[in-house]
Design a binder for these strands. Structure first.
Lengths: 345, 345
DNA sequence: ATGAAAGCGCTAACAA
DNA sequence: TTGTTAGCGCTTTCAT
């Protein structure tokens, strides 16, 4: 910067002004500074900048790198953060790396807020993080801790799926749950409620699972080993649904003729033509926007902590659902809206 | 830090010494400093630290967040970097975010080296990055640019797969390629070479694809629409193989009885019991270690740039390969070693 | 519109 | 073993 200033024959402050395009710089000077900088390949040093103003304008995102839903969220977070003038750094947890450590790294890089995707950290740890940064949790709630939260209205999503299947004539709808993953306890509970609402209390059946393809396949084998399949399966998420789909297909079961399958999330591969999974879509852009806005709002307006943002999901009807076999009901036309205005991507 | 020093009654330098556990601090003083710091919740400020020493000891990793192979690499990079005392920050490219921009972000965070996973950036851009940081490319070569490179010996992998299929009695082995993705041109070329080596020059057939499930499914439909299937398919990567598997299974084709399938990479889902994909495993821990070491070596030993590290792949025989239908040859026992010592995870 | 000077919180000689 | 003293490269009043 010294050099740039010298080259143009001005003081460093001027160069500084230009680079954070603050008012008070001659348009011509501005131009000359920029050119000189380009010539000698000058780049502002962010560490020095961060040190000087005491703000970093950096948002940290914690993700599980092998989770496709997280991948979607990350991609949606970038443009939102940029829009508000924030930078984003990513840190991943993994089998060999605790989320605890991943968060510490983020803090070490001076993130002013951390956005945690489906965090598994203990509330007590988050509380300690709260003293150093704004914390936003996506998908999991931490009531009373001061953590900002954004999540999907799981109940509405599950209900629209169950209602839809019921309208199609299904009664034996089993739920493969997602264990303790973000959103799963809610989905499990909401499934039960939705079944009861439809007078299907006796048909309630939950198979344990998690959010992996493997668990869908395991559930499939379990079901295949029994007398007969249920007519519909509501999976804990898309990956689970896809594992289920794969396993039953190999066993010669035809979807949706023999069994209907509904997922949750609407990850990109769910929409691929050869999968065409009917699923409850989470509003990824909305979640991303809400998460970033919650963080920035706290940072810039000293708002009260612990706000919550809830987004509506949307049933996306594709080709893995139809009326149960032996039913006279015709398969409904695709794209048919239900009360939550399902749509096809 | 000021406060900590005051609290213990020593100077700031002492506290500094303690925090980067440099020699020259009394074990008792050390103890007291640490305690005092804990009490007032002091955390060293990394921006200031980076500014003061002119080294950051941070490695930047560029990945495509929805690429499972990248996910594996990232998970393997973390422990390696930590072992050598480096911190890691992640930056993702995406449809809405060019790798160009992602790399700029990394540089802005003062990464001393950037590790690019399957980079698609233009060599001219990388050259400009080279002036500001050490650049390591994983999976793609940039000869003569000064970029460090680590990649798999694609030729050995492809050859072992083709040799294995040939030994099983296959002749009609088609390759679904990976377009211009990292490693694909090599794999395409190596497939041709391996076919010729086995006297199957006339059977060479390459279908265009990319590294997604979708492309495997598309290729499957293409093949299914013809008179008869080839007896074996060598996919450009595992995702493509899995898309192929899925599509043919739905069409009632049984794998491996009707067609054998081999992938490339050995991503985690390839090993799932219900998939059991035979594949060419890339040495992910090895690639990660080599990438980190190349970067650190350059950084710390002023070594000559442009080194290359090549790792051997390994054929992993699972259950998607067998002798072609109508062959008397029995299916070979699993775990049978071939010249590249294939093994089962 | 432009310049001077005082830090931001830490590290790294060097002295004591 | 401990304290002193300069900076690291930038931002930011406050003058000019």
């Amino acid at each position: 910067m010294e050099d740039v200033a010298a080259r143009v024959g001005v003081s460093r402050s001027l160069v500084s002004l230009v680079f954070r395009d603050a008012p008070g710089a001659g348009p011509r000077t501005r131009e000359r500074v920029l050119r000189a900088a380009a010539e000698i390949g000058y780049r502002p040093d962010s560490a020095a900048r961060v040190l000087a103003r005491s703000r970093s304008r950096v948002l940290g995102v914690l993700l599980t790198v092998r989770n496709p839903f997280h991948a979607d969220l990350v991609e949606a977070i970038y443009p939102e953060a940029e829009r508000l003038g924030y930078d984003v750094v990513l840190s991943a947890d993994a089998p060999t790396r605790s989320s605890h450590k991943a968060i510490e790294t983020l803090l070490g890089h001076r993130c002013e807020a951390v956005i945690l995707l489906g965090p598994t950290a203990r509330p007590s740890f988050l509380t300690s993080v709260l003293r150093r940064a704004v914390v936003v949790s996506v998908g999991r709630r931490f009531p009373g801790t001061g953590v900002e939260t954004v999540h999907t209205a799981e109940a509405r999503g599950i209900r629209s799926a169950v209602d839809y299947l019921t309208a199609l004539g299904h009664r034996e709808i089993v739920h493969i749950d997602g264990g303790s993953n973000a959103g799963s306890p809610e989905r499990r509970r909401d499934y039960r409620a939705a079944m009861r609402r439809n007078g299907l209390a006796d048909e309630i059946r939950v198979l344990r699972g998690d959010h992996t393809e493997e668990s869908g396949a395991v559930a499939a084998h379990q079901l295949l080993s029994e007398d007969r399949l249920p007519t519909a399966v509501l999976a804990g998420n898309d990956r689970c649904a896809m594992g289920f789909l794969d396993a039953v297909s190999r066993a010669g079961v035809v979807v949706p003729d023999d069994v209907s399958v509904v997922g949750f999330d609407d990850i990109p591969s769910a929409g691929l033509s050869h999968i065409a999974l009917t699923t409850v879509r989470q509003d990824v852009p909305g979640l991303a926007r809400a998460a970033v806005e919650l963080a920035v709002h706290r940072l810039e307006n000293s708002a009260e902590p612990g706000r919550e943002s809830v987004l509506d999901p949307e049933l996306v009807v594709r080709e893995t659902t139809a009326a149960p076999r032996g039913t006279t009901a015709t398969r409904p036309p695709r794209h048919e809206p239900d009360r939550l205005a399902p749509s096809v991507r």
